[in-house]
């Protein structure tokens, strides 16, 4: 009698767990499977590779920022990935920001300051669409987070960005590609408005780091993951401290509970 109820209960709990796992696992759509990559920032002790982030920023600045805004980023955020205060000031000052109105009531341009947001390539969404055949290049501040799938310790946003950037190719035979669209293996529907932005050697790095397509794609994917969550490293560090404290706390109270309950057991 007891054995059967254990079996029944166990079976039910097991199937409930299986059901929960189904919820957790995202099914592939149309058979598109985003390949999982290795990143320095995944896992319980993940950290960003600052050299990689700097390369990723360079790619963003040189290539992506022509069409993609990153409106939630400030130039001062770049100090976090290893740029010195002067370098940050120079990067900011290299763009002209519209400010104003001045005392005459006019808007005017001035060099950027660290406290400015990243300069957007277009004044508004409509201008962005007009310049891109009606397609809106999405803002990149949270791009990695919004494409993250069910980011369970893995960071599928970075996987997704890397996949898209490396997924361009010729359309297979019989695939109807609409005008102005490009075939991409990993994009939903396989047709993407953005033409291939990165190629081997598209960007040259001062320190001579690898600049083949795969490396470039990884660097910018890592940069965008950081841009989406600059506090990731703080989160991991605080998490470690919290978990260590909680383990000690729980053990202490378990011992106390056993001691107190021993009085009546």
């Amino acid at each position: 009698m007891k054995k059967r109820s254990i079996l029944l209960n166990g079976l039910t709990i097991l199937s409930a767990l299986v059901a929960v796992l189904f919820i957790a696992a995202s099914p592939d759509e149309e058979g598109i499977h985003i390949p999982r990559e290795q990143w320095s920032f995944t896992g319980f002790f993940g950290k960003f590779d600052h050299a990689q982030l700097k390369r990723g920023f360079q790619i963003y600045k040189d290539v992506c920022s022509a069409c993609h805004s990153a409106n939630l980023m400030y130039y001062r955020n770049l100090a976090q990935i290893g740029f010195s205060d002067d370098e940050v000031k120079d990067i900011a000052a290299s763009v002209q920001i519209t400010d104003g109105p001045n005392d005459a009531g006019d808007m005017f341009d001035r060099p950027g300051k660290p406290s400015d947001h990243f300069k957007a390539p277009f004044a508004n969404d409509q201008a962005a669409r007009a310049a891109n055949n009606g397609a809106l290049p999405p803002d990149m501040s949270l791009l990695a987070r919004s494409r993250a799938g069910k980011g369970f310790l893995g960071y599928e946003g970075a996987d997704y960005i890397h996949a898209i950037l490396t997924g361009y190719g010729d359309a297979p035979a019989g695939f109807k590609l609409q005008d102005g669209m490009n075939y991409n293996k990993f994009f939903r529907g396989h047709q993407i408005a953005m033409p291939q932005p990165l190629t081997d050697g598209a960007v040259t790095f001062a320190d001579g780091a690898k600049n083949d397509l795969d490396s470039e794609a990884r660097d910018v994917a890592a940069f965008l993951t950081w841009a989406g969550e600059p506090n990731l490293e703080a989160r991991h560090l605080t998490g470690l401290k919290a978990v260590l404290f909680l383990v000690a706390f729980t053990l202490l109270f378990y011992a106390a509970k056993r001691k107190i309950w021993a009085r009546i057991h």
Binding site: A148, G151, H236, L240, A242
Partner: peptide, 14 residues
């Protein structure tokens, strides 16, 4: 600390 957005929906970052 380790899966802060796993229970939510990534579309809410748009």
């Amino acid at each position: 600390f380790y899966a802060p957005v796993a229970l939510g929906d990534p579309d809410n970052f748009i």
